[in-house]
């Protein structure tokens, strides 16, 4: 059952405070919640938290036969599981709701279709054996802006993952376990990050970055921008909602450019920290 919509006093309180550029969690309008990245013991297992929103991403690699149309390319699939566990708004039965469709499609666009992975590097023997990467995204809790959280979790999981080294002699493929040879990171072209802005029905209210659940539900439109730290936009998506002036949209994209640079630094830092702790463990073995 869908939870009841926010009450009128709640709505008025939020709108009047947003008008004074105040947010319920004390952030500035264009401030993001700091992402919390927790790495699991396996490579490619990442839990990402934005406030109380939590998403778990996991990558696994298997060897398969490639499709006949693309014999030189590996396969990447994304499985996103949005269950009522995240929020009672998502239902298990029947057709996926519009929000779910949009989240799944956006993940697909950001993580697969924007050429994040070099698929040809996943080829082992042309037409015979390629790597099949399976990225599973579990949405654990939705406290607003699950899309950004899921994209971040997905991209960090891909960066964190390492596939076992393989050796090809003629038609023979030998897979070296991690204890024999150091596993290899995936060849990635770039790292896009997704940023969502929420707009409100009153045009004087400034748009907010990274809306929390209440802001998201009371918003009159969302715009998601995915881009990398090199100022390349990968996906821009504003489906309806409040009409905006062109300059306003371009201004928000500039904000996203700055945030992408900051986020890139944070992610790289966290990955390196994690890698240092792992290096020690490997030596101990």
């Amino acid at each position: 059952m869908r939870p009841p919509s926010p009450s009128i006093p709640e709505k008025e309180f939020l709108f009047s405070s947003l008008k004074q550029s105040l947010r319920l969690d004390g952030r500035l309008p264009l401030e993001q919640r700091t992402p919390q990245l927790t790495f699991g013991s396996d490579l490619g297992y990442v839990e990402c938290g934005l406030g109380k929103t939590r998403v778990l991403a996991q990558v696994e690699a298997r060897m398969v036969k490639p499709t006949p149309e693309r014999p030189f390319e590996g396969i990447v699939t994304i499985h996103s599981e949005i269950s009522p566990m995240a929020s009672p708004e998502y239902e298990t039965l029947g057709r996926a709701s519009e929000e779910e469709v949009i989240i799944t499609r956006m993940l697909d666009k950001v993580l697969r279709r924007s050429d994040v992975l070099d698929k040809e590097s996943l080829c082992i023997i042309a037409g015979q054996r390629v790597w099949h990467l399976r990225l599973t995204i579990h949405c654990l809790a939705d406290a607003g802006n699950m899309l950004d959280c899921a994209c971040l979790a997905g991209i960090v999981a891909l960066k964190h993952f390492r596939r076992p080294d393989v050796e090809v002699t003629g038609e023979e493929v030998t897979v070296h376990p991690a204890s024999e040879r150091a596993p290899i990171p995936l060849a990635m072209n770039h790292t896009p990050f997704c940023f969502t802005f929420a707009f409100f029905p009153d045009l004087e209210t400034a748009p907010v970055l990274d809306p929390n659940q209440l802001e998201q539900r009371l918003s009159a439109g969302l715009m998601s921008v995915a881009l990398n730290a090199q100022k390349e936009l990968c996906v821009v998506q504003k489906f309806g909602g409040v009409p905006l002036a062109m300059d306003e949209i371009l201004r928000l994209i500039d904000v996203a450019v700055e945030r992408a640079k900051e986020l890139n630094k944070l992610v790289e830092g966290r990955l390196q920290e994690d890698w240092k702790t792992r290096g020690r463990n490997v030596e101990l073995i």
């Binding site: 666009k109 279709r113 924007s114 050429d115 770039h190 715009m223 881009l227 100022k231 390349e232 936009l233 990968c234 996906v235 821009v236 998506q237 504003k238 489906f239 309806g240 909602g241 009409p243 905006l244 002036a245 062109m246 949209i249 371009l250 994209i253 500039d254 450019v257």
Partner: peptide, 30 residues
């Protein structure tokens, strides 16, 4: 676009493009 006000209701892009190039094409499409 909504031609009366010149405001934008929908923008979608799915391929990699530099921010400055985007701005150019975005205004032109408007």
């Amino acid at each position: 676009v909504l031609p009366k006000t010149g405001k934008v209701t929908l923008v979608t892009m799915e391929t990699r493009l530099h921010v400055e190039r985007f701005e150019e094409i975005f205004r032109l499409a408007g």
